Computed example of a mutant assay.
Amino acid sequence: MEGDVETVYENGLWKNRVDGHQRASNVAKTREEAVRTGRHMAKARHVVHCVRGENGEVVSRDDYRASPRGVPLPP
């Protein structure tokens, strides 16, 4: 979905990329640092945060979207 945040491993670095943009928003040396930053970005934007492992497979997916009442929306 447009605007979702994805944490990926590329060229020896962990990167956070906003869906719809080609360039990474930020890079990190460790997975933990990148996931923490990506989660913060997704929460602030009220979007989905998807983390991919080094092999490219989805490891986790957290949905921070919410309806006007604060109820999480279905995927």
Rank of each mutant, 00 (worst) to 15 (best):
K43R: 15
K43T: 00
K43W: 02
K43G: 06
A44V: 09
R45F: 09
R45A: 13
R45E: 02
R45L: 13
R45Y: 11
R45P: 01
R45V: 05
H46R: 14
H46P: 00
H46C: 11
V47D: 07
V47I: 09
V47Y: 07
V47N: 08
V47M: 13
V48L: 08
V48I: 14
V48P: 02
V48K: 08
V48D: 06
H49D: 06
H49I: 06
H49R: 11
H49C: 15
H49L: 13
C50Q: 07
C50N: 02
C50G: 02
C50A: 07
C50D: 01
V51P: 03
V51E: 11
V51L: 11
V51F: 03
R52L: 08
R52A: 07
R52H: 11
G53Y: 01
E54A: 12
E54N: 13
E54F: 03
N55I: 06
N55L: 07
G56H: 11
E57M: 14
V58S: 06
V58L: 02
V58R: 12
V59T: 08
V59N: 00
V59R: 03
V59Q: 07
V59A: 06
V59P: 02
S60L: 02
S60Y: 00
S60N: 04
S60D: 07
S60I: 03
D62R: 14
D62N: 12
D62A: 14
D63I: 04
D63H: 04
D63L: 00
D63W: 00
Y64M: 09
Y64P: 07
Y64S: 05
Y64D: 09
R65F: 02
R65V: 03
R65N: 07
A66H: 15
A66Y: 12
A66R: 15
A66L: 15
A66I: 12
S67G: 15
S67P: 06
S67K: 14
S67I: 01
S67F: 06
P68V: 12
P68R: 15
P68S: 13
P68C: 12
R69W: 05
R69A: 15
R69K: 15
R69M: 09
G70E: 01
G70V: 00
G70W: 02
V71S: 13
V71R: 14
V71N: 14
V71G: 07
V71W: 14
V71H: 14
P72F: 00
P72Y: 01
P72K: 11
P72Q: 02
P72N: 07
P72C: 05
L73P: 05
L73G: 05
L73M: 12
L73R: 09
L73C: 05
P74Q: 02
P74C: 08
P74R: 05
P75G: 03
P75E: 09
P75R: 04
P75V: 08
